[in-house]
Design a protein around this nucleic acid. Sequence first.
DNA 1: GCAAAACATGCAAGAACGTGCAGAACAAGA
DNA 2: TCTTGTTCTGCACGTTCTTGCATGTTTTGC
Lengths: 252, 252
Amino acid sequence: MLTDQRHQLIRDRLAAEGSVLAGELASRFGVSEDTVRRDLRELAKAGECRRVYGGAVASAPFAAATISQRGGHAIEEKARLANAAVAVLSAGQSLFIDGGTTNEAIARAIPRDIELTVATNSLGVASVLSDHPLVELIVLGGRYVRDLGTCVGADTLAAVAQLGADLFFLGSCGLDATRGVTAFDSSEAEVKRAMAGNSAGILIAVTNDKLATTAPYRVAAAGSISHLVVEKTAPAAILADFERQGAQIHFA
Amino acid sequence: MLTDQRHQLIRDRLAAEGSVLAGELASRFGVSEDTVRRDLRELAKAGECRRVYGGAVASAPFAAATISQRGGHAIEEKARLANAAVAVLSAGQSLFIDGGTTNEAIARAIPRDIELTVATNSLGVASVLSDHPLVELIVLGGRYVRDLGTCVGADTLAAVAQLGADLFFLGSCGLDATRGVTAFDSSEAEVKRAMAGNSAGILIAVTNDKLATTAPYRVAAAGSISHLVVEKTAPAAILADFERQGAQIHFA
DNA sequence: GCAAAACATGCAAGAACGTGCAGAACAAGA
DNA sequence: TCTTGTTCTGCACGTTCTTGCATGTTTTGC
């Protein structure tokens, strides 16, 4: 049996059942467990599964499933948020848009007949806007981080530094009325800070589960948020805190 | 038995079973394993299968089938070119890849188990490589040009200037043995020139209709091409001109 | 805390591989 | 018919890859 065939069979089994056992595969293929372990190690290195004690579990499909479930459930809500968010746009504005699924939804919600200048470090947002005929698109390059779907690093910061925007669509992070906007990744936070610093206003669109959460890295003070787009069911008390600090609240 | 007959039988077997074993084919055809290995090597070079230890597995047809639904008729030929082009890659190399549908096909043909560093100004190439787990992806940002599908301009040039690559996959342009590589757009040519200047080698993959054509803006001399990937039916006279100037010819 | 299972690593044998070379088969031309 | 050149093929050689085993380490279950 070819090594490649073993790999493919393992892939199939992972896709079908979500997990495999090293010992079982060894007896099924008629090879030693060491060989199976080597196979699993290679597949794991290629990102096609995650190695666990005793075997391996599917990574990409499983992750995709959870994302699509999460996205699938909230996707309608995110589309509503996105429509409310793009309502604040006016023709001729320039925007920063960074990463996150909410921002991709916003990019999709941007009408095709509005003239805008958009700078983004998100491949997803760039792809969506790449065929909007009236959008002048500026891609903020740099080191691409798979988990974030965005570019970060010195090159990205340098590109941001040369630009200014009327509005910054700040995506997917922690949001708290006292700690302000926070992010989970240091490099990501750097870029967001740079964008925030070069923008006249900041817009954040969040689902309820993001309200009143925090992450390690500070991005911007709560007082610098100019537009906050939330679900209709968002807790009024929390919104009042943001409103008191100058944010304009928009209900989706 | 004729060589061509063997090739056809191997093709049939690949199509029917998805994989073949070198030893088994040798005894079936009554030839030495060396001869079978030679056959498989040629078929792999032509993109009709993928060589693995112990034999070969079918490669292109399935992927090409889904792609060709979306694209035109040249898609299949481009996939063959792409498979031949990625054959020159070795692990650990760093690449520049610019725009064009051929380069997107090449990006798709890059195997998922090879470690590479890739810098590209093409949104399409970046999207394809964004989920290759072992590819370190650097996005070369700048002003996005819809017609080209790439970023160009001062920002892009500055980003290219900070990088170097072992190989530059130069896409979609005019190609002539005396005028060298030429492009249709001034800004595009600038970026290509910068990439060419910072690369140790240049690879160009072209369909026959691009051979012996020219465009207004010069990109690189014919002598700077290190690898030229062409269709099997490419005119030998033209290829000889390039070969005389140092290019290594690869047939898809 | 202990034993068993699972694991990673190094190693050696064997299989598969690529390359260079020489002979055989074949076609083209004198 | 003979010569010449080309292509195909098999063999020899050194190299690379895979695999199973031995060894020592880590994890798990009790």
